[in-house]
Nucleic acid binder design. Structure first.
Lengths: 337, 337
DNA sequence: GCAGGTGGCGTATACGTTTGCAAGAAAGTA
DNA sequence: TACTTTCTTGCAAACGTATACGCCACCTGC
């Protein structure tokens, strides 16, 4: 025996007004007399009424849902991004509809399914929208923000990290500490700010005269891969004295490989730099020098961009590049020895 | 200029049928002639029509959304649980509505907000539903499953780990390897299967005659806390030769504290056992003996319970306790020395 | 040829809101 | 007092779908 559900009609009857009045009582800024509003709200609370958001969405052709498309879950410590994003959006009265990218080819479908639910906006973490899908979104006036990606020419907003600036800092750091042969290890070419970092490192070292990039490897992702990779690198004729990895876990794999498998000392024989500043980087056993990832700022910025687009859909697309810098620990050489 | 949206009416016109036929074409098992269905589907695809799920939900008073209430995000490596859950539910045609528990007092509100969206079911990770809320859910016939919690007497389904069985294994393991003084460190009393583990360890060691629990501390959560805690324990008169921690990261803090701050050898001076088998546990620098957490099975079971309740809402509440066991690495003593 | 059954289809209503419109009330103005 | 202007309010028409109901066509078996 299902409990009879309470609709605006019940509230209207109890309060002695029309359903329209009930609707207005729940619509901020609607034209309604304070006394009526009070009466309606009281009736609503005695009945335990809450407006049916589904019916509202149908009518308004928009819900309070924000679609969240996630990919690369483990690579980058996105838990925090996800948690923060959901918390911030909730705080602004939105709900999160989460979807995992299992198959890149199907992103269009995923977005389509979210559109079915009349999502008010779209957040895409660590994945790029195919141009056609992005165009479709802008056409529908759906505010869209890419996190950790730059949607070149798609008209989407984006929040990411200034990779070029960061790459320059890293290069300077390594050069200053008299490194001569640098290896770059990245995961899948997933995150384009990381590409910018790598390019900047290559360019700046190339002009330094004292330091050069001797290896630039793709597809090195995670602890095991890093650990294997460093052995491979040290089997070559020319060995690195500095390694930059696109993920902390890869970097820790490199450190363990160097110490345990190769018997090297860190940082004397090899400096290691990670990226992301995830929890293990700070642990005593690792003390990894790494790049902080401004999770709070990224989320704050993304939410800000979203909310401003929801208010005024005609704003120009905006790309925000945040600054970040090295967190120096014990996995890299001192300046003067 | 917004693109005109396509409704079932447009499809009906193009196909030369009524809207009812269109609806039936998209409803599996509806009474419709194959030829008509084909015609409708063709018309739909030329127009790019997809049924509006919001309107459908309004009509059916149920959506394909599953509410997901998360708490304790970082404590337990729930990313994978979250990812798997979203992937499995998607595979069955459901969408995930994610909500973060910021304030335990407001869980009722959170659930209320999800109910607004006519969620078809509820998954609660690592949090317990207040009895009143749980009762409300069962009253509405909303399938509900608690993950990592046991909803004693709430009538909710639950999936968790058999803590008593696990605790016995751990106790036996420690006793067998001639440990005498055990310390137990747990985080917030958050996860009740962990309490069962602790109780089982205490009981079984108590009857062993050779081994006893000399400390049982609450609120030790994460690397830093573990690292501080082990120093504190070793400043006492009676020091442990074995530690079990409710989280891997705490255990790694204990290891680093013991080695770096106290100069102890692991496992010679101290055996350390963690819980969760998160990535760092297997790293060469730690080699932590720990308890596996059957993430895949937990998710699979939870989804299974949910789907079966969606089919038949009158099934009895079910509590599944999964078995798990130790992953033995190098942070614990060998058997015979 | 006819009664009874079956399967396919359209009509019309319901789902629970929001909102344009117009009318009525209240309040300000000359 | 009469005439505007400004607020409130209710009516009614959407929003896009699902489905109960009834109708018709067709088939079956006698």
């Amino acid at each position: 025996m299902a409990t009879k559900r309470i609709t605006s009609i019940d509230v209207a009857n109890l309060a002695g007004v029309s359903v329209a009045a009930v609707s207005r009582a729940f619509t901020p800024g609607a034209s309604i007399a304070p006394a009526t509003k009070k009466r309606v709200l009281e009736a609503a609370s005695t009945l335990g009424y809450q407006p049916n958001v589904i019916a509202r969405s149908l009518n308004k052709r928009s819900s309070q849902l924000v679609g969240l498309l996630m990919s690369g879950w483990n690579n980058f410590g996105y838990v925090d991004v996800l948690r923060l994003l959901s918390e911030r959006l909730e705080a602004h009265g939105y709900e999160v509809m989460l979807k995992s990218v299992l198959d890149r080819e199907k992103i269009g479908e995923y977005v389509g399914q979210m559109l079915q639910y009349q999502v008010a906006a779209l957040v895409v973490v660590s994945e790029v929208l195919p141009a056609a899908v992005a165009a479709d979104c802008t056409l529908r006036g759906l505010p869209t923000v890419l996190v950790n990606r730059i949607g070149r020419g798609t008209g989407s907003c984006a929040v990411s990290v200034d990779g070029t600036n960061l790459g320059n800092s890293i290069a300077d750091f390594l050069i200053e500490r008299r490194h001569r042969r640098i290896a770059l290890l990245r995961g899948r070419a997933d995150i384009d700010y990381v590409d910018d970092v790598m390019n900047a490192i290559k360019e700046r070292t190339a002009t330094s005269g004292s330091c050069e990039v001797i290896a630039d490897l793709d597809g090195v992702l995670g602890y095991e891969a890093g650990r294997r990779c460093i052995s491979e690198l040290f089997s070559r004729a020319e060995t690195p004295d500095g390694v930059f990895c696109s993920y902390d876990h890869t970097a820790i794999g490199v450190m363990d490989g160097a110490r345990i498998d190769l018997g090297l000392s860190i940082p004397e024989d090899l400096s290691v730099i990670g990226n992301g500043d995830r929890a293990p980087a700070s642990w005593g056993a690792h003390e990894l020098t790494t790049v902080g990832y401004p999770r709070d700022e990224v989320v704050e910025k993304a939410v800000h961009i979203l909310l401003s687009r929801l208010e005024d859909p005609d704003l120009e697309p905006e790309t925000a590049l945040l600054k970040t810098d090295l967190v120096i620990r014990a996995s890299t050489r001192e300046k003067s020895v």
